[in-house]
Simulated scan of single mutants.
Amino acid sequence: MRTLEHPDRDDLRLDAVLSALADPVRRAIVGQLADGHAEQACMAFALPVSKSTSTHHFRVLREAGVIEQRYRGTAIHSTLRREDLDARFPGLLTAVLAAG
């Protein structure tokens, strides 16, 4: 089974999370995960970028620890790491989501 690397909760870095959330496309992904189902396939996101650019945005979010991604068959499903982000940086995710 293929797996993807994710930082542990204690290894989340504020600068990496803020950098990942600085991009409007990545904020749209996070917003959709926050408002939608707990887990969504990457193809469920209607993003205004090419597939390869979309893949890049998901990778940046995963490597920063904002989302978790898991293979489900041949599809990759993403979930928001809300609990981990709230534990490390209380209020940050709520503020980012409220700001739009």
Rank of each mutant, 00 (worst) to 15 (best):
L14I: 10
V60Y: 00
A87D: 14
S52K: 13
E68Q: 15
L33H: 02
V96H: 03
T55H: 05
T74I: 12
E39W: 10
C42G: 06
L14T: 06
R27E: 07
L21C: 12
T74Y: 11
A98D: 15
R72V: 12
L47E: 07
P24H: 14
D23Q: 15
I67Q: 02
K51W: 06
S52A: 15
G73A: 09
R13N: 11
A28Q: 13
I76N: 00
D10P: 04
L14V: 08
A16W: 09
H6R: 11
L12G: 08
V66S: 02
L80S: 03
A38Y: 07
A44Q: 15
D15M: 04
R13W: 12
S19K: 11
E68H: 14
D84M: 09
G31E: 06
L80H: 02
A46K: 10
R81I: 00
T3C: 04
L92M: 10
T3N: 10
L85E: 02
T55Q: 05
K51L: 11
R9Y: 07
Q32Y: 02
R82G: 03
V66C: 00
S52P: 03
P90N: 08
L85D: 06
E83P: 00
I67L: 02
P24Y: 13
T94I: 05
Q69P: 00
E39Y: 03
R26Y: 12
V25R: 07
H6S: 11
L85H: 05
D10K: 14
A22T: 06
D84F: 08
G65H: 04
T74K: 14
D8N: 11
V49Q: 05
T74N: 08
L80K: 09
H77F: 13
E63V: 09
I29R: 09
V30D: 04
S78R: 04
G31F: 07
L18F: 03
A87G: 03
L61G: 01
H57Y: 12
P7A: 06
L80W: 01
I76R: 09
A64K: 03
F45T: 00
E39S: 15
D23L: 13
S19M: 07
